[in-house]
Design a protein around this nucleic acid. Structure first.
Lengths: 189, 189
DNA sequence: ACGCGATGTATCGCACCGATACATCTGGAA
DNA sequence: TTCCAGATGTATCGGTGCGATACATCGCGT
């Protein structure tokens, strides 16, 4: 997850950790926090995996001098060739994981770099996921309505409304996508 | 978090793990998943802490027989006296943690067992939390609007709308609470 | 000259999630 | 009547991410 987000952000420009976090908050803040506590370990993992590399900012650690207060410069990361590959690869796969709550937002954020077919498939996957959830909630609610105290009820209904809203949003998006490419449709074959 | 939820559910009736999970999904499914992977460890922790105790369902493990295929009965949990105390204690504290994303839903679910003053304080805390977030997002959006691709923009706006909706919802709830107790107000003192 | 808030890197412990394993019970199709 | 699929039920494992915290530097207003 964070991995995909980082790949996407670095795909546009090299960044150091702090900036990365700012961008993360800016684009995905509504859905996930992505604190430093996961960012830095992820950066290390990705560096070890070879997706990203340090790009020597203004560090210029003079070999002789440091030892104490070793003047640590910014650590700027950039995508490697393998990293770019990995990014396209991740963007291409539209599996069930792409439309889970946590994942969907990140995928969506990079839709402009995603294949149109994949876009539609993800949007539809997300929508039916939500519709499932909504039906479950609805029937459960109908079944237990009487026994619920008013707060629990309010909570259920607010939740249901939110899901409804997102479903409508997705439907609009899907239609827009369709209009752009009238030849693509749900069932290939 | 899960701890509070479990205390709340067991406060109404003794339950075993599976049932507990069902209820969790039913009341909080819109916000958190609460899988078994956290439920069972939590139950163990709570048992060790003394908040809950096993209530021997239909286990009736006859001392002599088992060994192989040892007929494992349901493990029904119930609140202990300390557990009840702990529950009221947790319900009473309305700190910043009560209105974070993950926590708020759980607190709200047990509002019928919460002190009216605390209810209002939590609702207001949640609201100003969201308003802060909204302002941040709004100004960031205004600042960067031109540079954003249309998908990122859509995402931002959808997020903003959602926050708006929740703020309105909270405002209504607060007003309702106020009507119920016209003497309570924001600043004590 | 001082200090405070933003910038910047990093780690630690903990909560939780998703997948998985495995066993039992129940009801309907074969 | 047998068989098997799906619901019920308990449990663990690896991994991801979060919140708090620590610490150092930099730019700026006072």
């Amino acid at each position: 997850m964070l991995e995909l987000a980082v790949l996407g952000l670095l795909h546009e420009a090299p960044l150091h950790g702090y900036e990365l976090r700012q961008r993360l908050k800016a684009t995905l803040g509504a859905f996930r926090a992505f604190s430093y506590g996961s960012l830095y370990p992820t950066l290390r993992r990705m560096k070890d995996a070879g997706w990203i590399a340090e790009d020597e900012g203004d560090a210029t650690v003079v070999a002789g001098a440091p030892a104490l207060t070793g003047r640590r410069g910014k650590v700027v990361y950039k995508l490697t060739a393998e990293g770019k590959e990995r990014f396209t690869e991740l963007l291409a796969e539209a599996g069930p994981s792409s439309w889970e709550d946590e994942t969907f937002g990140v995928h969506f954020a990079f839709f402009s770099k995603t294949d149109p077919d994949v876009r539609v498939r993800i949007l539809e996957g997300r929508r039916s996921r939500l519709e499932e959830r909504r039906e479950g909630a609805r029937s459960r609610l109908a079944r237990t309505r009487g026994r619920l105290d008013s707060y629990t009820l309010q909570l259920q209904e607010h939740g249901l409304d939110s899901v409804d809203r997102e479903v409508r949003w997705l439907t609009e998006l899907i239609e827009t996508e369709r209009k752009k490419r009238p030849d693509a449709h749900t069932e290939p074959r």
